[in-house]
């Protein structure tokens, strides 16, 4: 059963068509790669799906269980609460906050105490905060940042900031995880570790993952299905082997070996 279906999605910025008539079907549990040259519209597509931009036309339908939910035109926070989470190409952590708080913010939607029980410090407040603290630590442990919990996010080295973004995204309790260039700026060792981590997360949380990546070692090792965008249009889709040998894709990358 398809969990995410994108139909005829188009986005124009003034006269520029950033995404044109994109159709995409993602099955539950898929690990999908989205590749394409710089400026192809990959991040714009992510922004459309997660509600940062409203599409010019087209539909995005999300079916986490049996009921289909129309996502196009909804607000980002609402979409996130339906079970979408993402990381960013240019890291957007809450820099001045601690590593732990970064994760806890993402649990905003399922913290269940009210203003009064927090001001009066009723047991409900402590119970919820304890639960949130434990869950946040668990997530930090998974990405290997448990020791850094008190550190300010901006003081982490680059690779760890990327992993913190993943922990933060997981804290929203997603069914679909969007990773925007998770390996950007990482050295080969870090990329290999990350590849392993993404595979583990998928198993452990039963996630559907869609990722944008330029690092072909990661994409080809990890993704079962790959979509290729060029100038806002979908030019190819298929398994890694099909994509490697696709003439259009090779042309799009200017003859670069894929």
């Amino acid at each position: 059963m398809s969990i995410l279906e994108i139909r005829q999605l188009t986005k124009n910025f003034g006269g520029i068509a950033a995404v044109v008539d994109v159709d995409m079907v993602v099955e539950k549990g898929d690990l999908v790669g989205l590749i394409g040259p710089n400026g192809a519209g990959k991040t714009t597509l992510f922004n459309l799906i997660t509600g940062v931009y409203a599409p010019t036309s087209g539909e995005i339908v999300f079916t986490p269980y049996n009921k289909a939910i129309l996502l196009s035109g909804k607000k980002p926070w609402w979409i996130t609460r339906q079970g979408f989470a993402r990381t960013f190409q240019n890291i957007r952590l809450f820099k001045e906050l601690s590593v732990l708080d970064n994760v806890r913010i993402a649990m905003h939607k399922d913290i269940k105490y009210g203003v009064f029980s927090s001001i009066l410090r009723l047991p409900a407040y402590y119970k919820e905060e304890d639960r949130v603290f434990t869950k946040a630590l668990e997530l930090l442990d998974i990405v290997g940042l448990k020791e850094k919990q008190a550190e300010l996010a901006k003081n982490l080295p680059y690779g760890q900031q990327r992993r913190l973004e993943i922990a933060r995204a997981l804290a929203t309790d997603p069914t679909v995880l969007f990773l925007d260039e998770p390996a950007a700026g990482m050295n080969p060792q870090e990329t290999a570790d990350l590849t392993r981590l993404i595979g583990e997360l998928r198993q452990r949380f039963g996630l559907t993952i869609i990722l944008i990546e330029h690092d072909m070692s990661l994409v080809m090792n990890l993704c079962e299905r790959i979509y290729v965008l060029d100038y806002g249009r979908l030019i190819a889709k298929g398994s890694p082997d099909e994509i490697k040998n696709n003439q259009k894709v090779i042309e799009a990358y200017l003859g670069e070996e894929v």
């Binding site: 997660t50 509600g51 940062v52 607000k75 980002p76 926070w77 996130t80 609460r81 989470a85 993402r86 960013f88 957007r92 952590l93 809450f94 820099k95 001045e96 906050l97 708080d101 806890r104 913010i105 993402a106 649990m107 905003h108 939607k109 913290i111 105490y113 203003v115 927090s118 407040y125 905060e129 933060r168 995204a169 804290a171 929203t172």
Partner: peptide, 24 residues
């Protein structure tokens, strides 16, 4: 110490990212 306080601090650093973490 509270979730609304964390949300306020998050929105003041990066409102867009906060929205994408489920903060209204």
């Amino acid at each position: 110490k509270t979730k609304i306080g964390r949300a306020m601090r998050a929105v003041s650093t990066d409102a867009d990212a906060a929205a994408l973490m489920g903060v209204n």
